[in-house]
């Protein structure tokens, strides 16, 4: 998996970008509202994006389905080894956490902390690549990938 760089867009959300094997620079803008934009950078002016595809939360899910299972979970191990500054962490949702009963989408964890929740362990079962409508229960163990700073924030959020 190529290196995905992440940039905060204050007041808007997060921008994630990578270079395709073909050499094109692609960005995904995650708006806080759940909206997504896909932008392709101009070859002549690498600072500008030429086309943008606007997706609402549902469109984004559909597109993700069409493109195949979340490559993030498949690549976790690889990512961990290859990308400097990226870490993986396990956080237990304690009793009394404000997110017990709320979904991943409601928590907007990726937007707020830049981390991705790649799996949830509940009892003996594993829920790989939980969808945005996954609802947390007490004692869920959340497996997340991100910068160590982002993971610390996620931990603070989940135990608050």
């Amino acid at each position: 998996m190529p290196e995905v760089s992440e940039t905060l867009l204050p007041g808007v959300g997060v921008r994630l970008e990578f270079t395709t094997v073909g050499g094109e620079r692609v960005a995904v803008l995650n708006h806080r509202t759940g909206r997504r934009e896909i932008a392709v950078y101009d070859r002549d002016d690498p600072d500008a994006c030429t086309t943008a595809l606007h997706l609402n939360a549902e469109d984004a899910r559909t597109l993700a389905e069409l493109l195949g299972a979340s490559p993030v979970s498949e690549a976790v191990a690889e990512v961990q080894q290859h990308i400097e500054g990226l870490a993986i962490d396990w956080v237990t949702v304690p009793e009394g956490s404000s997110f017990v009963g709320s979904t991943i989408a409601e928590g907007a964890f990726r937007t707020r902390t830049g981390t991705s929740i790649v799996a949830v362990l509940r009892g003996d079962t594993t829920i790989p690549a939980p969808g945005p409508d996954h609802r947390f229960e007490r004692d869920d163990v959340v497996v997340a990938v991100g910068t160590s700073e982002g993971l610390a924030e996620l931990r603070d959020l989940l135990v608050s």
Binding site: L9, R15, L29, A39, Y41, D47, C49
Partner: peptide, 12 residues
């Protein structure tokens, strides 16, 4: 449609 642009995070 400039939210993806390189200068945008700097502006924000």
């Amino acid at each position: 449609d400039r939210l993806g642009n390189r200068e945008t995070p700097i502006v924000l």
